[in-house]
Design a protein around this nucleic acid. Structure first.
Lengths: 255, 255
DNA sequence: TCTTGACTCTTACCTTAGGTCATAGCATAT
DNA sequence: ATATGCTATGACCTAAGGTAAGAGTCAAGA
């Protein structure tokens, strides 16, 4: 007769060893017997029972309920299943209602505040954001990118404009500080604001990755395409280079 | 400005006081201030916030997630809602699959073992069982009755036949004992078996109610309609009266 | 004024289904 | 004999409160 150790049984049934310990503890699945050294040893019957347990668990029954179903030979499994079926049905109904509610709420919140794509990319070029997203996809996967995309698009006009204004404000401050050392505290403070603000545009603020190279890349982009750091549509000589240098320093020392 | 104590707020928002304590503890909903004696006092803003909390909770967000949504003014509620929406969608999909699985399993288990109505009422008259159910409904409510109905119908042919056989066996034993005193131990032991078995037919075995009057009613029915206690289709003079008397005694002394 | 009942406070243990250590005993191959 | 791997038990942790104990507080009636 084949005997399984905890590890073997766990692997066979795709559960953790802790789970087997737990089931033993609550008396849901006891080993066929213990070795001399108290090792748990399971047989075919236990494997079978474990599979039944997992089946009922998948259907959402609690371990206690499963105990009752499996141990009461007299009682019929069908009753338990029918019971669970009706629970699942009401849960399904509940979720349907919740989905309707959530959709209505979203519509209401979006209302006329939904910003257009044009407005979305007014602060950053479409290509720039698009490229950032492509890179992000490789790092974080499709789902995460879609999440942030949704976030950006769902920003209200007001919030988006505020972001733009903040960015513009930072540029102005930096312009005023453009005779300072790029490594000076005052300049680096502004850059730190710029970094945070930029990540809000990217929809990646709050994520673990500091995006060091992305941010450095943005700095270089400023020198290559000075139009990106205009202030109120006006160009200021040397500003792009100054900001870019400050960004490189920030990335090197902070990220 | 209106101030609410824990009890008032709890009642207003239909939550427990413990919940308010908890929300305070985790910083989700702090009282506007504390009285001199440390009593929590809430204002309108807190009521409003609590309502928002409950809304999101209803949608299935964790308290932690709710904290984040409500506290990050910068962050948009829509993102959180969209997120939750997709969670709910997959949950709905999962449940649909589970329901299919459960239905298939039920069908398989029932297979050809499902007993027909004809078989179900073969041992007891349809009217009798039906009347018992109607009475039970008043006592226990619809849900409980449906549960037991399911149980009865889900009995396998084998289990059902076994019940019938046991009932028949009891009648035979009682026939053999029909010269004994109805109050004698031997007779009362058989009646006790009959009682348990009958409650299995009724699907009420295991419930708290002893169904004293129902059971006594059944005894009287036996004398009124002797066909109910035939053995293998044969009628035995006086048997119904004997059993009925024994049942009355059992009900009086045991139930 | 004292007492009683209703209310409040904090502290703490309990619930599910295990996850995640820590510590120690056992097994096996080198 | 030792290194590696497996096992055991015990303990603490999670989410969202329920339940209860013990003590302080408040308002009303005697």
């Amino acid at each position: 007769m084949k005997r399984y150790t905890v590890k073997e049984l766990a692997k066979l049934a795709q559960v953790s060893i802790r789970t087997l310990h737990h089931y033993d503890g609550i008396g849901l699945l006891k080993p066929a017997f213990r070795s001399e050294k108290k090792y748990r040893l399971y047989g075919k019957n236990e494997l079978l029972r474990l599979q039944q347990i997992l089946f009922y668990k998948e259907l959402g029954l609690s371990l206690k309920a499963i105990s009752e179903v499996l141990d009461d030979k007299n009682f019929n499994h069908i009753a338990a299943l029918e019971n669970q079926r009706s629970s699942l049905l009401s849960e399904q109904k509940r979720i349907t209602i919740l989905l309707k509610t959530i959709d209505k709420t979203i519509l209401k919140l979006k209302g006329k505040k939904m910003i257009t794509d044009k407005e979305l990319y007014a602060g950053f070029s479409k290509e720039e954001v698009s490229s950032m997203r492509t890179k992000s996809k490789k790092k974080f996967g499709e789902a995460e990118v879609q999440r942030s995309e949704k976030y950006l698009k769902s920003l209200s006009k007001e919030a988006f404009k505020q972001l733009q204004n903040e960015q513009s404000e930072i540029f102005k401050n930096l312009l005023a500080l453009s005779k300072e050392d790029v490594a000076s505290e005052v300049v680096q403070l502004e850059i730190s604001k710029h970094y945070t603000n930029t990540r809000k545009f990217w929809g990646t603020n709050g994520t673990a990755d500091t995006q060091k190279s992305d941010y450095k890349g943005l700095g270089k982009l400023y020198t290559a395409e000075e139009s990106y750091c205009q202030i109120d549509g006006k160009h200021y000589a040397g500003l792009a280079k100054f900001i870019s240098a400050a960004i490189q320093h920030f990335a090197k020392t902070q990220l």
